[in-house]
Design a protein around this nucleic acid. Sequence first.
DNA 1: ATTGATTACGGTAGTCGTAATCATA
DNA 2: TATGATTACGACTACCGTAATCAAT
Lengths: 220, 220
Amino acid sequence: MELNQVSYFINLAETLNFTAAARLSGVSQPSLTRAIRRLEDELGGPLIYRDGKNSRLTGLGHDVEAEFRRMVVAMKSVRNHSEHWAMGGHRVLDVAVAPTVGPKEFTAFFESALAEMPSIEIKLHSLQSNEDTSEVLSGKYHACIMPRETRPERKLDVHPLFRERFVLGCSANHPLAANEIVRGEDLLEFPFVDRLKCEFRDRILDHFARRDLLMRPRFR
Amino acid sequence: MELNQVSYFINLAETLNFTAAARLSGVSQPSLTRAIRRLEDELGGPLIYRDGKNSRLTGLGHDVEAEFRRMVVAMKSVRNHSEHWAMGGHRVLDVAVAPTVGPKEFTAFFESALAEMPSIEIKLHSLQSNEDTSEVLSGKYHACIMPRETRPERKLDVHPLFRERFVLGCSANHPLAANEIVRGEDLLEFPFVDRLKCEFRDRILDHFARRDLLMRPRFR
DNA sequence: ATTGATTACGGTAGTCGTAATCATA
DNA sequence: TATGATTACGACTACCGTAATCAAT
């Protein structure tokens, strides 16, 4: 079964005349005759009663026509779609933002990007906790915004977007409340909780390890 | 755009792997690669990002996949249909019966026919007044049952099914009431109405003409 | 070294158009 | 004779498979 056979048959079903159908299809009459015959051979039965000016579709021909029309519709839809696409039509950019970051930090950037490229639509997703940059490689998202830099990957473009300060929240009469700057070393004097699920745990462990500081968590 | 390209692409969209898609499609890997490339050339843009184990469909690829699946569904439907048809599946026979005749005369025949050919369904239609045997030639009906024989047509099978008697209805003391048989000549003695729209008018005119009898209608 | 995709190339199948043939009105 | 469909035949396109090449892990 070939698509030219399909469109030939549609034209034949509309004209019930091989000559006219061939003209509609832009091929010679023998070519259309052969195409229809091949179709009939493949489907195992005649599609049209050949009877000069009284030609008419067989029952099978009627049934087949309906399905073929669906195929032609789908095919035209593909052509339309790809044409619009090629013309720089609508494109959707799926961007995932980690929940810790929150998209509101970037609304200004998104707005200017949308203004600059009117043919682009940006769809924001919330990056799930079990997802990471591999979701970009697999194609689920086109880009993602994360709270920490990832290990460099050749296949990924990684750009630094922002820096975040770590801030200590404590009571006003806490010994550290007076410090303008609180270093990691200062923190080690006090008991702390090791939150295994903290997004920044790896980075903080790494930070202290590089400074040869020993962390002694009091709770876990 | 060819149907093999369509099914190749469906397989590729499911596997995201040219080698696996080629195996599924039953062709060599280079052949599938070329088919996809031709498709992309025709549609004017890439359908899949080629990236080893991280290959993924483009936006256009996603859109095209949906439409292509519709085409494949329609194609499979055609195959199923024609297969059932070839297996002696369901066939509908459209039979038109002239309203003068009425289908009830043939219910016994239709019932026996249905019993004999279980794969056949008979659909009865009422033959409209402006329709005749040409509706069979044009394919609207497969057969029609008419109250009079038509002129012989090479393209039509004509079979006599029944004979109808013409009966005189009159009052008991009418001069003709005593006759066992009423001949046309007997009728000519009496005034009668020439019903131009009578279905049998032509046949009756012909009948008298062949006997050199002059009809003198008193009303029209 | 292995997996995955593309390019090169010779062979072949299938489709096309022209022209001839057949059938019918 | 004119219209419509099929068959015959030579030509060409385009697809396929094998094999080689390129790229990345």
